[in-house]
């Protein structure tokens, strides 16, 4: 579904260049739950921004179903974001002037979906995520976990095929985090949603099928969960993170 090929990203002026991403390559298969981990400044949010077309790469290609997103026009990019991508952010990014129902429906309204269908699909998505009873409330009236589920509903309601999540559990307590991660797992498992999540939390990462580790803008390591249980996978992630904390030569 998604192919990231040798992308590089530089910031700054000619005399002071910061390399945020350095020849990063990987593929994401349909229906996969991929997590990208790394310390602060490792380039994981930059990578997510490039994939989500919010930022552009300095070199390399990002192909979505074989189409290089750098070749798309401004209008086509907007359409691409509307129809193919769903976003879940650490700070929820809900519009505080809209109700939960309207926040979810916004993704469909932007697609110019007819009003009747908007209501039906919002209710269907809200039902799946267990927030049907708070549809008329405003963001400031609900909990952090409910806000994040609302964001998840918005990210899937328009039938988006790739859900991009940036530290989605960062502002949640452990119970709400677990609840959200199980919902995302269910979306991946039951609704075949492809998920690309950025996090620095090993527990969140343990829900993934595969974990990519970034360090200093490069892919440092990769872990596949396979048939292992989540607890085992969690410990393996912690081991890699421990190695990641030291020098790269300590791992290889």
């Amino acid at each position: 579904m998604l192919q990231v090929q040798n992308i590089e990203k530089y910031y700054g002026s000619r005399n002071n260049v910061t390399r945020a991403l350095d020849r990063v390559s990987f593929d994401v298969a349909d229906g996969e739950f991929l997590v990208i981990m790394g310390a602060s400044g490792s380039g994981k949010t930059t990578l997510l921004n490039c994939i989500s077309t919010i930022d552009t790469v300095s070199a390399g290609k990002i192909l979505m179903d074989g189409v290089n997103i750098a070749d798309l026009s401004e209008d086509a990019l907007a359409k691409f974001r509307r129809e193919r991508l769903g976003f879940v952010f650490q700070d929820f990014n809900l519009l505080d002037t809209l109700t939960v129902e309207e926040n979810i429906g916004l993704a469909l309204a932007l697609n110019h979906t007819d009003a009747k269908t908007v209501q039906e699909r919002v209710r269907e998505a809200a039902g799946k995520l267990g927030i049907a009873d708070i549809l008329s409330k405003f963001p400031y009236q609900i909990s952090g976990g409910q806000k994040q589920r609302t964001a998840c509903a918005r990210a899937m309601v328009a039938g988006q095929s790739l859900l991009l999540a940036d530290e989605p559990t960062g502002a949640l307590d452990s119970k709400a985090s677990k609840n959200l991660l199980e919902i995302m797992s269910a979306m991946n498992r039951d609704m075949k949603a492809t998920i690309l999540m950025v996090t620095h939390d090993a527990y969140s990462a343990s829900y993934a099928d595969r974990v990519l580790f970034l360090k200093d803008g490069r892919v440092f390591n990769e872990l596949l969960r396979g048939d292992r249980g989540r607890a085992v996978f969690y410990h393996e992630i912690l081991d890699v993170l421990a190695a990641l904390g030291g020098d790269v030569s300590d791992v290889f």
């Binding site: 209008d75 907007a78 974001r81 509307r82 976003f87 990014n93 519009l95 505080d96 918005r154």
Partner: peptide, 19 residues
């Protein structure tokens, strides 16, 4: 500031330039 955040989000959600 609030409008800026709103439009950044709308841009991420795929709202086009004219809209």
């Amino acid at each position: 500031d609030r409008y800026r955040r709103q439009f950044v989000l709308l841009r991420k959600l795929g709202m086009d330039q004219r809209d």
